[in-house]
Amino acid sequence: MTAFKKIEDHLRKEAKNLLEGGKVTLVLAYARGFDEKHPVPCVVKAAADADHLVFNEYCTYNMARYLTRYPVGTKIAVAVKGADSRAVVQLIQEGKVRRDDLVILGIPATGMKNQKTGEVIDAKTTASTINPVLYDVLLGDEIHGVKAGSPYDVLAEFEGMDKDARWAFWKKEFERCIRCYACRKACPMCYCDPCFMDASRPRWADKSPTDDGTLMYHLTRFYHLAGRCIDCGECSRACPVDIPLHLFHKKVAKECEAMFGQAAGMNIEDKPAMANFKGEDSDQMLG
């Protein structure tokens, strides 16, 4: 079991040191929300405020989401869990943040819970990445010996469906979409400004919530996240109507890994899969 209290103490201490020492100008981590079960993402700028930081099993947010808000050159310390650290790596690969600007506070954590239902969500999202892949300071201890299945295990049920059943499934899920765009806004990799959905010339999809516009939005977003999705599950968690977007992203990630031999956000030396090609790519991938 993850020692949340210990991590929290370490996080506060580390944030205080970094801010006092002037190594960073801000720390991105978690603070208490309106109650204990509902923490909020927070930014700490003064060492005295570091005591407000918390870390518990409900701190599911991917803090890498906030990195691209600050101009390049801002010295930032960011608290990241396993999958979140992959987002940082991916952002470095894409040149959105610089490694030198960051102090990565890695948090190995299992047993993270959904705030609404209290259900443990590890298996749904970051099954394989319990320990951060890149960090400067490790808060807590690395976790070993937890039997982590493949992150793609949850896909079996959907891959087993025939195409008509799959279409029926997604059609039903997308029908609920209210186009609040929480999925793209919660996503650490969705930093485009403007997003293709906000463009009016050309208008890629209807602005009103029609079914075909919703289909266009989600399918295109799945494509835009191809080779970049780091499987943090934020899109599904943010969705107010519980559309399991992470399943589709996982499927795309799985195919990318199989075809291009590289998972997103594992190594800062990698090039993003879709902005690259290799000599050994073959036409077989076109089916």
Binding site: F158, K163, D164, W170, L219, M259, D281, L286
Partner: peptide
């Protein structure tokens, strides 16, 4: 580049049904 893009597009279309 197109080969990679279209390969993924194919998979997305397939998974959508």
């Amino acid at each position: 580049y197109a080969r990679r893009k279209l390969a993924i597009t194919r998979k997305i279309l397939e998974f959508a049904g």
